[in-house]
């Protein structure tokens, strides 16, 4: 039986791309979760200048991982660990959002950092289902996209991670936005925010906080008509 090599595009919000090689998933890119590049740089494993230089060097070799390892700044194992984590997080990000339709797309560029050993779709699906179920059973289940959170005044965070989340919880950001701002996985940040909501460190923001409109009383865009003056 022929096994698929290509991309499954999931259209929706956040949506995403499942990159397949011989039927196994080697990467999932989603606007709902930080990719391997963001995770590598934000965690301090790779500096931004090394990433930029490796991108240039990989144009000829066609392998960003090879270029990164050749610079001596990271091991192949570390890259693979992050690539696999980003793939699982991407699948969670797609599944936790709205899915409108799916299609096979052959015109998509290959992923920057694919997993060397692909994951069977059944296994990835099972892990994603497990993550969604675990989130639903938390004391304060929340949507990583719909719910925007704000810090509760006068509370003291217990950990550095909680403090970082509180600093970003302006009421305009949801878990997905905070995950990108921190450069950490969506699932981990969503679970942490859920716990903080349960502990009273955060609360769901009022709509007027999440969307704060301001205007300056402009009454019209039309040019003013010439003034008539009766003498």
């Amino acid at each position: 039986m022929e096994r698929v090599t290509g991309v499954l595009r999931v259209v929706g919000n956040a949506g995403g791309l499942f990159h397949l090689r011989d039927g196994a998933v080697v990467a999932v890119d989603s606007p709902g979760s930080p990719g391997a590049d963001t995770l590598l740089i934000s965690s301090g494993i790779i500096e931004e200048k090394d990433w930029a230089a490796a991108l240039v060097e990989s144009v000829e070799t066609r392998s960003l991982q090879t270029a990164l390892v050749a610079r001596g700044v990271v091991t192949a194992t570390a890259v693979q660990d992050v690539a696999t984590a980003a793939m699982q997080d991407g699948a969670f990000a797609v599944a936790a959002g709205e899915i409108e339709r799916c299609c096979v797309d052959e015109s998509v560029d290959p992923p920057l950092l694919p997993a060397t050993t692909g994951v069977e779709p059944d296994l990835l699906l099972a892990e994603t289902t497990h993550r969604l179920d675990a989130l639903a059973t938390l004391p304060f289940p929340l949507s990583p996209y719909r719910d925007r959170v704000v810090a509760v005044c006068g509370t003291e965070p217990a950990t550095v991670e909680q403090r970082q989340i509180i600093e970003l919880a302006t009421g305009r950001r949801n878990a997905r936005d905070i995950a990108f701002a921190l450069g950490r996985g969506l699932h981990a940040v969503t679970v942490e925010i859920s716990r903080m909501l349960g502990d009273g460190l955060l609360e769901i923001a009022e709509p007027t906080t999440s969307f704060s409109f301001s205007h300056w009383g402009l009454t019209s865009l039309h040019p003013r008509a010439p003034r008539e003056v009766e003498c």
Binding site: F213, H215, L218, T219, S220, L221, H222, R224, A225, R227, E228, V229, E230
Partner: peptide, 14 residues
């Protein structure tokens, strides 16, 4: 004593 026309601009629908 002077007469000015008042332009009937509708408010923008914010």
């Amino acid at each position: 004593g002077s007469t000015f026309p008042i332009q009937e601009w509708s408010e923008l629908n914010y």
